[in-house]
Simulated assay, not measured.
Amino acid sequence: MIGKPRKIGKTIEDIEEGQSLSVTESIEDDRLLLYLGLTNDANPLYIQHDYAQTTEYQKPIVPSAMLMGIITSAISKHLPGPGSHVVNFSINFIEPVYHYETLTFDFEVIKVDKMKDVATISVEAINGPGDRVLDAVVMVKPPLAKIEESKE
């Protein structure tokens, strides 16, 4: 939609340490199959129950990159929001995530560097039973400026 004003996320001036966001996502088959199809990932650990039963996991797990995508999507949509760009991503996968789990991702701005125009956001994901399944630190360049609306 060229020419139409778009909502832009928070600039570095709008972001403060302590700002937070919580996002809940359910991992369903349709999303898993879409991810696997888009990435052409045929790892049997992600979809084949008979294979997964022979592993330490006992059932199919969610691809790590798919979980990273949920995090980057929340950053792009909400904090800082549209126009932002992830410049560094560090993640620790603590426990496997299984199909049909519901995860709550908690985001918190832990540092704002106005000189470098970068916000550092910590992320923690908890599954339904309350187990921490991952934690991450993401450095994000927020959008540089808001797009002004046309006066037409």
Results as ranks from 00 to 15, higher is better:
Met1Thr: 02
Gly3Leu: 10
Lys4Val: 13
Arg6Gly: 01
Thr11Cys: 07
Glu13Leu: 05
Asp14Cys: 01
Ile15Trp: 03
Glu17Thr: 11
Glu17Lys: 12
Gly18His: 04
Ser20Pro: 00
Leu21Ser: 08
Val23Leu: 12
Val23Ile: 15
Thr24His: 02
Leu34Val: 10
Leu36Pro: 08
Leu38Ser: 08
Thr39Pro: 06
Ala42Asp: 13
Ala42Ile: 07
Asn43Pro: 04
Asn43Trp: 09
Leu45His: 06
Asp50Met: 02
Tyr51Ile: 09
Ala52Pro: 07
Ala52Asp: 07
Glu56Pro: 03
Glu56Cys: 02
Glu56Arg: 14
Lys59Ile: 02
Pro60Asp: 09
Ile61Glu: 07
Ile61Met: 11
Val62Gln: 06
Met68Ile: 08
Gly69Ile: 00
Gly69Leu: 08
Ile70Pro: 02
Ile71Asp: 03
Ile71Lys: 03
Ser73Phe: 01
Ala74Gln: 11
Ser76Ile: 00
Lys77His: 10
Leu79Lys: 02
Ser84Met: 06
Val86Met: 06
Val86Leu: 09
Asn88Lys: 13
Asn88His: 13
Asn88Ile: 00
Phe89Met: 04
Phe93Arg: 07
Glu95Gly: 01
Val97Pro: 03
Tyr98Gly: 02
Tyr98His: 09
His99Ile: 00
Tyr100Pro: 01
Glu101Thr: 06
Phe105Gly: 03
Asp106Glu: 10
Glu108Asn: 11
Val109Met: 01
Lys111Asn: 14
Lys111Phe: 01
Val112Met: 08
Met115Gly: 01
Asp117Lys: 14
Ala119Pro: 05
Thr120Asn: 01
Pro129Ser: 06
Leu134Pro: 07
Val137Thr: 15
Leu144Cys: 00
Leu144Ser: 04
Leu144Asn: 10
Ala145Gln: 14
